[in-house]
């Protein structure tokens, strides 16, 4: 127990990085997801095809393999470490890979949200002369985003869990910090327990919040 108390600041420092990576990845993932969703809904076969390949590849391979491939695999054929810097490249690449991974799921959330908007809304927008772009921007997306919020909050919880896979590629987060502390204190039980409790508290709170939003949205059908 003493080991936990002694190292709590260190663990919380790790948690801080976990949350930084999560937030960066979620923001990027929403952008990637939105682009992929719009591509998949577009009329162009090429854009549709590209988006489908992206979504399927990232959903049908394990995140850990994606991380190893992009962080270590690509540097075997491209001088990425030189371009971005020895220290920066793994962090940038890992964050982007995580965002691409989550973005593949988020694109399906966004797509379902867009498709869930009543066709009559689009026709009404067209009838007052809105272009497809303006219809999407002012009518469809605001309505779609509202109903996408609960699943997006859930996906954020998933993203925080997924950041634990950054530790195996040598990026400092909560898990990585924990491993270092364990190697110094030989207290795997209490340290892993505390790590699990920290994850649980955050993720449980977020998914409760998502559930609350969902219930509220059902009451308020707007």
């Amino acid at each position: 127990m003493q080991a936990v108390l002694d190292n709590l600041p260190q663990l919380l420092e790790g948690l801080k990085f976990t949350l930084y990576y999560s937030i960066a990845a979620i923001i990027l993932a929403v952008i990637f997801g939105l682009i992929a969703a719009l591509m998949k809904l577009s009329k162009s076969k090429i854009l549709k095809g590209l988006a489908t390949v992206y979504i399927e590849v990232f959903r049908s391979t394990p995140l850990l393999v994606q991380l190893f491939f992009i962080v270590f695999g690509l540097t075997g054929v491209l001088p990425l470490n030189e371009w971005f810097g020895q220290r920066a490249y793994p962090i940038i690449a890992a964050t982007i890979t995580l965002a691409l991974h989550e973005g593949a799921y988020i694109s399906e959330i966004i797509r379902a949200g867009i498709l869930g908007v009543d066709r009559g809304q689009k026709e009404a927008a067209a009838s007052i002369g809105m272009t497809e772009y303006k219809t999407m921007r002012y009518i469809v997306l605001p309505q779609a985003f509202k109903r996408m919020i609960p699943p997006l909050v859930n996906q954020s919880a998933q993203t925080i869990k997924d950041t634990s896979l950054l530790a195996p590629i040598g990026i400092i987060d909560l898990v990585y910090r924990g491993q270092i502390i364990i190697s110094a204190t030989f207290e795997p039980f209490s340290i892993w327990l505390v790590i699990a409790i920290i994850y649980f508290t955050i993720i449980f709170a977020i998914s409760q919040f998502a559930g609350y939003l969902e219930r509220r949205m059902q009451l308020d059908k707007r």
């Binding site: 009543d118 009559g120 809304q121 026709e123 009404a124 927008a125 067209a126 009838s127 007052i128 002369g129 809105m130 272009t131 009518i139 605001p142 309505q143 509202k146 707007r222």
Partner: peptide, 20 residues
């Protein structure tokens, strides 16, 4: 067509007001 539709108003059976 978008420019032309500005001059042609339409009302629908289901109203289709923007719900948000």
């Amino acid at each position: 067509i978008h420019e032309l539709r500005q001059h042609v108003g339409m009302c629908f059976q289901q109203f289709n007001l923007f719900r948000h």
